[in-house]
Design a protein around this nucleic acid. Structure first.
Length: 272
DNA sequence: ACAATTTGACCTTC
DNA sequence: GAAGGTCAAATTGT
């Protein structure tokens, strides 16, 4: 049984969906374990045993990820008063999304991940800044569909100081996505607390599954850069800002269809 | 030409 | 004044 805390980080009212998702995955994990045991009894030659093992590993890893993720969210009810072409100075300072007074009202949640861009959404970078006491700059992203669909989702990505292999990034999200363009089925969900060997494929870490890789406009992977980035990671070199920038190019990841539906995990409308 | 990223300036809070 | 977040002009890439 996966160790599971009943404590709900963001409080039961805001995290109901999140908590329910953990409960359901946990239940599925238990059922699969039972199925695994039955199969082993019936077919000692382990017919399908590897598949089940992999499913168990994935489920365990997803659970760890969910439990390490802080709940809390806003419901996306915050309307952005601006339209795309508005001039910066035309707004009252306190009405601007970037205004700290306004920003603090928004709830945020963060994850640590080796796949800072592998969340299935498309992001556009709008800023980068060196942060105090941090080795690496923090990058600021907003949803690509902010203008088209008014999606106010944002995130910041910062590589953590530790020389992990692969490097770990702290991704802080604010505002739920309201856009409808997510390829949620293709979300590879790998969290920091997941065991490193628990990859989406039994072969362990691979650049294609665990890194957000540069793509061309059609979404095709740019192979040379993949290899280069992966080499950097294998040597456990800190990612230079330039390299981070290259990784930022990829706003979505091409991956085998994953079992985890981001919308389900996040809750559909009232947060998680 | 268009889209995405970079980067310095700007703004508010502490 | 420092720090963090955002804007938008300039630059780069496709």
């Amino acid at each position: 049984m996966v160790k599971m805390s009943k404590k709900i980080p963001g409080g039961p009212s805001t995290c109901h969906h999140h908590f329910m998702a953990i409960e359901e995955i946990n239940r599925a994990y238990e059922l699969m374990r039972q199925l695994h045991a039955v199969l082993l009894q019936m077919f000692p030659a382990q017919v399908g045993g590897d598949i089940l093992k992999e499913i168990l590993t994935l489920t365990s890893s997803a659970l760890s990820g969910l439990q390490s993720t802080r709940c809390g969210s806003s419901g996306g009810s915050d309307d952005d008063p601006r339209c795309a072409g508005d001039k910066r100075k035309s707004l009252q300072r306190s009405d601007r999304p970037g205004d700290p007074k306004r920003r603090r009202k928004q709830e945020t949640w963060s994850i640590a991940t080796t796949v800072p861009h592998g969340d299935g959404y498309q992001w556009r970078k709008y800023g980068q800044k060196m942060i105090n006491n941090a080795k690496y700059p923090r990058s600021y992203y907003r949803c690509t569909y902010r203008e088209g669909q008014g999606c106010l989702a944002k995130k910041t990505v910062q590589q953590e100081d530790s020389c992990a292999d692969p490097p770990s990034f702290r991704v802080e999200y604010s505002m739920q996505h309201t856009c409808k363009t997510i390829d949620a089925a293709a979300v590879p969900f790998v969290m920091d607390s997941a065991p490193k060997e628990a990859s989406l494929h039994s072969g362990g870490f691979s650049s294609e599954q665990h890194l957000s890789l540069p793509q061309d406009t059609a979404g095709n992977l740019i192979q040379d850069e993949n290899l280069w980035i992966y080499d950097q990671m294998q040597e456990c070199l800190p990612l230079e800002p330039e390299l981070l920038g290259k990784m930022d190019v990829a706003s979505s990841i091409s991956s085998p269809t994953g079992p985890w539906d981001w919308d389900m995990l996040m809750g559909d409308d009232d947060g998680w």
